[in-house]
Design a protein around this nucleic acid. Structure first.
Lengths: 111, 111
DNA sequence: CTTCAGGTACGATGCAAGTCGTACCTGAAG
DNA sequence: CTTCAGGTACGACTTGCATCGTACCTGAAG
């Protein structure tokens, strides 16, 4: 029943340019801001972000975030889980998540 | 003769999305990395970065950095000065310059 | 004055990226 | 089995952006 974790880059292989490019998009950054604000780092569903875009585009954005090494995607077949790679990000780019958290309007904020 | 400072956004008006978009480009990020590594924050000429691009494109990149609020451009008429807005960046996005400095090839890395 | 280098303005071009439509796959529930 | 919702694959479209060519401006030096 355990889904398989889709592959992303190793912690040491994270590239700052790729990360900045991933965070340049408003939708992806809003996802990361929400994830960074949740200190429990619990696994979340893809729909829990209420992104105002089609599901194909959501697939695209989550893929970009995963390939940048910012999130893990757990594949359950007909469902998908999202989890922030907080430890790896803090190790490679300390302060980055704090930067994102500072933009948080105060926790869970739709827009 | 003191040149006039070309306008950029106020420190409080810096937008994280605009900053990330500015830093997503390799050339602009290399400029910022060099500036962040120089703790003296001295004014620099536009040619001191040895960017492998035409001067029109350089004009474009420096404009993007200025409009993002990351640098000041001092216009001397037929010459231009570049200066890092370290204080404003540190105030609005603490840790960002450290992040850039960590990517510096031989610059000042935090130890 | 003329010349020249640094810089800008405008337009064109080529490429990367965000978005969605259609079709298809997967697993759970009837 | 069939149905259905979540997700993906592929392709097309459109926008944004980095780049450069041409022309022009600015100030300093002859």
């Amino acid at each position: 029943m355990a889904g398989k974790n889709l592959v992303g880059p190793e912690a040491d292989a994270l590239d700052l340019g790729t990360v900045f490019r991933a965070l340049a998009d408003e939708h992806r950054r809003s996802v990361m801001t929400e994830l960074a604000a949740d200190r429990s780092d619990s696994e979340r569903g893809c729909n829990s972000f209420n992104l105002p875009i089609s599901k194909q585009t959501q697939t695209h954005h989550f893929r970009v975030l995963r390939e940048a090494g910012l999130i893990d995607e757990i594949d359950y077949g007909n469902r998908k889980g999202i989890r922030l790679r907080r430890a790896d990000i803090d190790k490679r780019f300390p302060g980055l998540l704090t930067l994102l958290g500072a933009e948080s309007p105060g926790g869970t904020a739709p827009r």
